[in-house]
């Protein structure tokens, strides 16, 4: 009896000791994970990439490239921007970046007066270099240091070339544009127009509307009514791609139409894979990101002064639906 009692007491003791020490160690181990103290006195090379279209596959790639390059260069980069072409917000971001005295601003060009005012006056007065990426604004108007991105004129030409190859030398082509008439859009249009000039049998119909979405659909509806014999669509502003295809699908098959677009819209690639889009200009967003950061660092480190004002062009190529299938 006595032995049993002693045994039980010993067991209770051991159990209690075990749990007590276990929880004591738990308490001791549970450290509060405070964020690491910053080791740098002040940050150098604070870069910011600002875009109107956050979270699109195209801009995600640009961001990824930029981040990669920034890490390589020892710079810190933040990706700011607005969603869904919210210009007001986008401009505010730029202003904020200027007031925050960023060391460099890499920005998606926006061909508006407000944008130019900001880059030309504010950024210059704060001494902040600006590099436009993907979409350009002429240097004379924006005082940008350089442009990194595709040659939009060439892209237009490439699309026109493909159109001729697919459609032949005669037919009706609708060019979908938005009313803002941004610089890159103009370039593309110019490229297309210049190429198609040599083909008199091709009729170009330029259609303009405010915005993609409802307006785009309405415009497409109207165009289809007015030009029932249309052969091809080119979404010069790639945001119209979805609208065009959606509206055509409502009436008939998509296949007979030749539809071309650019890759800077989120839907473009999937539509191309489905075969609804006949061709798409593929740009090199990753490259743009990398390149822009690299050039910005070169500017900041005074390695390459001045930068080429005409811009640094990245590769573009035509991707056809038939290539993917």
């Amino acid at each position: 009896m006595r032995k049993i009692a002693t045994f039980v007491i010993a067991i209770i003791c051991v159990v209690l000791f075990y749990f007590t020490f276990d929880s004591a160690f738990d308490v001791y181990r549970a450290n509060w994970q405070l964020p690491k103290e910053s080791d740098q006195e002040s940050l150098d090379n604070r870069l910011v990439l600002i875009t109107q279209e956050l979270d699109t596959p195209f801009w995600d790639k640009v961001s990824a490239g930029a981040r990669k390059q920034a890490e390589k260069e020892g710079a810190t980069i933040e990706i700011w921007g607005s969603y869904g072409n919210n210009q007001e917000n986008f401009l505010e971001q730029i202003e904020l970046a200027i007031y925050s005295k960023m060391d460099g601003i890499i920005v998606q060009g926006l061909d508006t007066d407000e944008f130019k005012e900001l880059t030309k006056v504010k950024a210059a007065s704060y001494g902040i270099p600006i590099i436009t990426v993907a979409n350009d604004v002429p240097s004379a108007e924006s005082l940008r240091k350089t442009y990194v991105g595709s040659n939009q004129y060439l892209a237009g030409e490439l699309i026109a070339e493909q159109l001729i190859a697919d459609m032949g030398a005669s037919g009706e082509v609708i060019l979908m544009l938005d009313s803002k008439q941004e610089f890159y859009q103009k370039q593309r249009l110019k490229g297309i127009q210049d190429y198609l000039k040599d083909y008199p049998n091709i009729e170009m119909i330029e259609a303009t509307t405010e915005d993609a979405g409802e307006h785009g659909i309405a415009l497409t509806k109207d165009l289809l009514n007015r030009y029932p014999n249309v052969d091809a669509f080119i979404a010069v502003n790639s945001n119209f791609t979805e609208d065009i295809i959606e509206e055509i699908e409502r009436r008939s098959k998509v296949i007979p139409y030749h539809i071309y677009s650019f890759d800077d819209n989120r839907a473009s690639l999937s539509l191309l894979k489905q075969g609804k889009l006949d061709g798409m200009i593929e740009q090199s967003p990753q490259k743009m990101g990398e390149r822009s950061v690299k050039l910005m660092m070169e500017w900041l480190n005074n390695d390459t002064v001045p930068l080429n004002l005409d811009g640094y062009l990245t590769d573009i190529r035509m991707v056809k639906a038939t290539d993917l299938q």
């Binding site: 964020p35 690491k36 910053s38 940050l43 604070r46 810190t76």
Partner: peptide, 9 residues
């Protein structure tokens, strides 16, 4: 700190 240094700057 490391996580907010950019924003804080």
């Amino acid at each position: 700190n490391t996580e907010n240094e950019l924003a804080l700057t």
